[in-house]
């Protein structure tokens, strides 16, 4: 029993099977990796888990509950959140506002509370601002908290996206190519950051990545996808020595 279970997950676009009959378990508190050549269906799986795409057939079980085809915001509420391959920040807002907006989930004052500025509003709003400030500090964005998100350097935009995701206090964090466009130094830092936030926030993490050093370095369990189907699964060493995986990546002699 994992925290996230995919049962026979399938997604077709017209005649194309983007994801075909994938079964996968993500263990609680683990860091798992999802790898495969371009177009293998990795991001599609993320989109299915987070409800962005509707599942054609199969089931997604999270924390014992069926979340198949639920609205994305409900899936987020149940404790899954993600980052995007092509960063999707609230671009025109500041770093602080980005994180503060995502913190909304931890307050429940109504529209009337906010219009009349009732005590409930003041109390919860104070809590939200403290929480946002704390997250920004943990993620090392404090000196840039009033910068417009779009003006941040690329690596920090990725960091901010993770900070925004953490504001929801998720149980499962999906990272879609977090190291894309980063140099080896930045990748190294990112690896440290991922291990750190896992410990600090008690997270289960699932990563899509092409940087093999990162994947092999921090993942405990890896699934390899090719043409929408599962090719192999196992520990980093298992996967590295798997014949079909080597074939898919390097071709056959």
């Amino acid at each position: 029993m994992g925290i996230l279970e995919l049962h026979g997950l399938t997604k077709t676009f017209g005649g194309l099977t983007a994801v075909g009959d994938v079964n996968f378990n993500v263990e609680k508190d683990s860091i798992s990796g999802l790898i495969g050549p371009n177009g293998a269906g990795k991001t599609t799986i993320f989109n299915l888990i987070t409800g962005v795409y509707k599942v054609t057939s199969g089931k997604i079980i999270f924390d014992g509950k069926d979340i198949t085809n639920k609205e994305p915001y409900l899936i987020a509420e149940s404790g899954i959140t993600r980052t995007f391959q092509n960063i999707r920040l609230f671009k025109k807002l500041t770093v602080y506002e980005n994180v503060l907006t995502a913190c909304h989930y931890n307050a429940n004052y109504s529209i009337f509370d906010s219009v009349l500025r009732l005590p409930k509003f003041r109390k919860q709003e104070k809590k939200l601002t403290e929480q946002a400030a704390e997250l920004i500090e943990i993620m090392g964005l404090e000196s840039r908290k009033d910068l417009i998100a779009n003006n941040l350097p690329y690596g920090l935009q990725r960091r901010l996206e993770i900070a925004r995701a953490l504001a929801l206090m998720p149980k499962l964090l999906l990272l879609d190519e977090p190291a894309a466009g980063m140099n080896p130094d930045e990748t190294e830092q990112l690896m440290k950051l991922i291990s750190e936030i896992r410990k600090r926030f008690n997270l289960t993490i699932l990563i899509i990545e092409h940087h093999m050093d990162l994947i092999m370095g921090i993942c405990e369990n890896i699934m390899v996808l090719n043409f929408g189907c599962k090719l192999a699964e196992g520990t980093p060493t298992d996967v590295q020595n798997d014949k079909s995986v080597i074939e898919a990546y390097l071709g056959v002699e």
Partner: peptide, 20 residues
């Protein structure tokens, strides 16, 4: 308020709003 911030988030980036 959080309600206004959520509206602004919807304006800025619908998909990301849903994800949070």
């Amino acid at each position: 308020s959080r309600h206004g911030r959520n509206m602004i988030a919807v304006r800025e980036e619908e998909l990301a709003s849903q994800i949070v």
